[in-house]
């Protein structure tokens, strides 16, 4: 009886969430899959197309480029950002008091900026004619380079800006992980004669591995869905060669009024994110054990 009552209470408490989840997520997702089987504009039912959109997807050069760009972006950002965040966190952890707070705030500040502001800052820093970083670029490349209008430098450039803007959040996560390592464990290892490198390899690293896995997973998922920063930097430029997958959906749906095919690409992204997330999670878990 009590159990049944518990169930009823649980159900009543969960109902608002389930209702919103169903209306705002489950239903649109199902609708999106249905839309991917139709030849439809952005607004309107269109006509049944069976698997036509999926056949088109298989031979779509732009979809391949967008997939490649997205994976390239993840590869450039996720590992670099994780390693950098760990190094910064270990540095910050050694500081004390207000100095630690001040340094932490410096790293965290860019994370609080809206993406549009991040874009404007770096757009000016790297402007071909007036950018204050162009002398450095010119020293390396031998001439001024329009970083965001040159296909080969576009993704590394955007990845650099993304790491700059988002590393602060990962630093916080690592810092929390480092603080949770019991002092006794480190002291015991030190008493046993472990040096700094040995201490990191055998104590710190294994103990913060769960945080590392978390940081990598969060980045993988968020960067696979990258849109805003790539969109801002390639706006009115060579979008074909530099766009991300979500940007391709945006272009198809809102600029080309091709709702059905846009839904098909969206389904492909959903599958890609799900598969890669599960794969990574399994991989990291086995590594952790």
């Amino acid at each position: 009886m009590t159990r049944r009552r518990d169930m009823a209470v649980a159900f009543i408490l969960l109902l608002p969430f389930l209702a919103i989840y169903g209306v705002a997520f489950v239903y649109p997702t199902i609708d999106m899959v249905v839309l991917s089987l139709r030849k439809a504009p952005l607004i309107g039912a269109g006509e049944w197309a069976g698997l036509d959109n999926y056949v088109r997807l298989a031979g779509d050069r732009l979809f391949r480029i967008a997939t490649r760009n997205t994976l390239w972006f993840v590869a450039l950002t996720a590992p670099a950002s994780t390693v950098l965040a760990l190094l910064l966190a270990m540095g910050v952890a050694r500081l004390r008091g207000w100095l630690q707070a001040a340094v932490l705030a410096c790293f965290f500040l860019p994370f609080m900026l809206p993406v549009s502001v991040v874009y404007l800052i770096w757009h000016w820093i790297l402007d071909t004619h007036f950018g204050i970083a162009q002398p450095i670029v010119a020293a390396v490349a031998g001439r001024s380079v329009s970083i965001f209008r040159t296909v080969s430098t576009f993704m590394p450039g955007v990845a650099f800006v993304t790491v700059w803007a988002t590393v602060g959040f990962s630093v916080l996560l690592f810092l929390a992980g480092l603080r949770s390592i019991p002092q006794e464990t480190s002291e015991a290892a030190r008493l046993d004669g472990a040096g700094r490198i040995a201490l990191f390899r055998h104590v710190t690293w294994p103990l913060i591995w769960p945080v590392t896995a978390l940081v990598l997973t969060i980045q993988l998922i968020s960067h696979l869905k990258v849109f805003d920063i790539v969109y801002l930097f390639n706006l009115r430029g060579r979008v074909d060669e530099t766009m991300s997958l979500v940007q391709y959906v945006f272009r198809l749906a809102f600029q080309q009024n091709d709702g059905g095919y846009a839904a098909t690409v969206a389904v492909a992204i959903l599958v890609l994110v799900a598969v890669l997330s599960v794969l990574q999670f399994q991989l990291l878990r086995s590594r952790g054990q």
Binding site: R149, T150, N234, R236, G237, R238, V239, D240, E241, R251, Q255, Q256, N257
Partner: peptide
């Protein structure tokens, strides 16, 4: 319907005319 600001013709300019004019 492909014309007008931010519509496919503008996109195609960024993708093709821009690199052509800039010698890429």
């Amino acid at each position: 319907p492909l014309a007008g600001p931010a519509y496919p013709i503008y996109d195609a300019v960024g993708d093709f005319i821009l690199p052509a004019v800039n010698g890429e």
